[in-house]
C-alpha cells in the first residue's frame, strides 16, 4: 500500500538546510496497523506529511497504492488525498463554525456527493464513533475526546485506504486515549491500513508493528506482541 525507497527530505533554514529524513526505506502492506515512534525532531511528522501528500520529498521514491508520487501538483494531490487518505491530527483540526455532522460530511462534499447522501453517510459514521446525539453541536461544545472521535469519523467517511494519525492521543487523557485507540483498532480490524505517529509507548504497544526513528533514520522495525498474536 505504501512503499518508500531511500527517502530524503531537508528544510532550508536560512542559507543552510536541515536534513530531516536521511534515506528511509519502508514498506507497509494493506491492512497493517503501524506506529512510528521517535523523539521530537526524529523526523516522524515529516514522514507522515510526505506519506499524506501534505508535503513533498526531495529524493527517493514513494509509491502510494502502486502509484509513483512525483511532480504532484496541488490538484492531483487533493484528488489522491480525498480518494485514498484519511487524516487524524493531534489538534483535531475541525472547522470551528461547522457542526460535528457538517465537519464529518465535508470530505464527501469535495468528493462531489449530493448533500442528502453526505449528511446521511456522515450521520452513520458519527453513530459509529458514538456521537450521533452530538451531531448538531459545534466543536467548541465538545470535549477533547469527542472532538477527536468526530475527526476520526471525518477521516473514515470517504472509506480511505490508509488512515494517517499524527499523535492522535497527544492532547487527550488516558481514558479518552483508550477509547480513541479502540476505535483505531476497530478500523484496522475492518481491513483499513492505519499509520500512527506517537511518542507514547502505551499507544505504540497497541499497534501491530512499531517503527522507531532516530535522527532521520529507521533504527528498528518490529512486530509487537499484539501483532504476533494476531498473526498466529
Amino acid at each position: 500500500m505504501i512503499k518508500i525507497e531511500k527517502l530524503h527530505k531537508s528544510y532550508p533554514i536560512g542559507k543552510d538546510s536541515l536534513h530531516v529524513l536521511k534515506g528511509i526505506d519502508l514498506h507497509i502492506k494493506e491492512g497493517e496497523f503501524v506506529s512510528i515512534m521517535g523523539s521530537s525532531g526524529s523526523g516522524k511528522s515529516t514522514l507522515l506529511n510526505i506519506v499524506g501528500l501534505l508535503d513533498v520529498h526531495d529524493e527517493g521514491n514513494y509509491f502510494l497504492n502502486g502509484q509513483l508520487i512525483k511532480n504532484m501538483n496541488e490538484k492531483k494531490a487533493a484528488l489522491l488525498r480525498n480518494k485514498f487518505l484519511g487524516f487524524i491530527f493531534q489538534s483535531f483540526n475541525l472547522i470551528s463554525y461547522k457542526t460535528a455532522l457538517e465537519n464529518v460530511a465535508l470530505p464527501l462534499y469535495y468528493k462531489g456527493i449530493s448533500r442528502k447522501e453526505r449528511l446521511k453517510t456522515a450521520l452513520d459514521y458519527l453513530e459509529k464513533v458514538g456521537l450521533k446525539d452530538w451531531a448538531n453541536h459545534l466543536p467548541n461544545e465538545l470535549s477533547g475526546g469527542q472532538k477527536q472521535r468526530v475527526a476520526i469519523a471525518r477521516a473514515l467517511v470517504t472509506k480511505p485506504k490508509v488512515v494517517l494519525a499524527d499523535e492522535p492521543t497527544g492532547a487527550l487523557d488516558s481514558t479518552t486515549t483508550d477509547s480513541v485507540m479502540d476505535l483505531l483498532k476497530d478500523i484496522n480490524n475492518e481491513g483499513m491500513t492505519v499509520f500512527v505517529i506517537t511518542h507514547e509507548e502505551e499507544v505504540a504497544e497497541q499497534t501491530k508493528r512499531v517503527v522507531r526513528l532516530k535522527d532521520g533514520l529507521i533504527i528498528s522495525d518490529e512486530i509487537t506482541a499484539v501483532g504476533k498474536s494476531k498473526a498466529v
Partner: peptide
C-alpha cells in the same frame, strides 16, 4: 489559512 489547510487535507482543490 488554517481552515483552507484542513479543507485541502480533506481533498479540496486549490481552485475550489
Amino acid at each position: 489559512t488554517k481552515e483552507f489547510g484542513i479543507r485541502k487535507a480533506l481533498g479540496a482543490k486549490p481552485l475550489s
